[in-house]
């Protein structure tokens, strides 16, 4: 059993995410200044970006940029692809530096977060299936890859659907390939891509938010929420307040 401190430290990335998330949300709700709210929102979103990126990280993996020249085609591909889903699935416990092979042989139960609910076989099934349908494409990938050399890795997924039935085999192959301690292990690129999109969305949201803040300042002369509210109240009840003299 791992100790309490190990439990905390092994998941340091999540702690960072959670702390950032809370700081961000707190800022959004607690600050009255509209710009500060936007800043809080950005911190909040950033925590999510980090979360996505960390789940894409494969132990020992490099940036997902194709370096085909140094490698035997098929295996090199296979490693990269075979790894990524595994990384995604089993990253929780991520004792850094362990090889894929070792990880599978190791007791996955040590990974509390997952083991709490997943039994080992299921976990393996997921990994195998996952590895399978990506790696499956890798068997056909060399043909494709020969034609479209130096494409991004993910491109090979185009033909992925063909390979479901041989998924298990392929997964096996992938895992074996990994066991040979191949030189290149790629980090899962998909979360990066997703988060690039999310960043764009986030920037757009920030832009709209700031633009609104500017317009609000033009219209009201302030960007402090309590003052805005007070002015809106006057706008709503102002006439009545003047008529009866009971309301400010």
């Amino acid at each position: 059993m791992e100790s309490w401190t190990e439990f905390v430290i092994a998941r340091y990335n999540y702690w960072i995410v959670i702390v950032l998330m809370m700081i961000g949300l707190y800022t959004v709700f607690a600050r009255g200044n509209l710009v500060k709210k936007i800043v809080g929102l950005n911190i909040f979103q950033t925590s999510v970006f980090i979360f996505y990126i960390t789940i894409g990280k494969v132990a020992g993996g490099t940036a997902p940029i194709y370096i085909g020249d140094e490698l035997y085609h098929g295996d090199g591909h296979g490693d990269g692809h075979g790894d990524e889903p595994h990384g995604a699935a089993a990253d929780h416990g991520a004792d850094a530096g362990a090889s894929l092979h070792a990880k599978i042989e190791n007791d996955l139960g040590a990974n509390d977060l997952k083991a709490a609910a997943n039994d080992l076989t299921l976990d393996e099934g997921v990994i195998a299936g996952e590895g399978g349908h990506d790696a499956a494409s890798l068997h056909t990938a060399p043909d494709d890859a020969a034609k479209i050399a130096n494409e991004q890795l993910i491109d090979a997924g185009k033909s992925a659907s063909q390979g479901f039935d041989i998924a298990a085999d392929a997964a096996h192959g992938a895992v074996e390939a990994a066991a040979y301690h191949s030189e290149v292990i790629y980090t899962n690129p998909l979360p990066h891509v997703l988060i690039l999109t999310a960043i764009v969305v986030g920037v757009a949201g920030t832009a709209v938010g700031l633009a609104l803040a500017v317009r609000i300042r033009e219209a009201y002369g302030t960007i402090e929420e309590d003052e805005l509210e007070a002015m809106d109240n006057v706008a709503e009840f102002g006439a009545a307040a003047e008529a009866t003299g009971t309301r400010g």
């Binding site: 999510v48 889903p85 995604a88 699935a89 997921v126 996952e130 997703l194």
Partner: peptide
């Protein structure tokens, strides 16, 4: 969605 991706590896 991220958590689901973590659990399944698909979107």
């Amino acid at each position: 969605v991220g958590l689901l991706y973590q659990a399944t590896g698909t979107l």
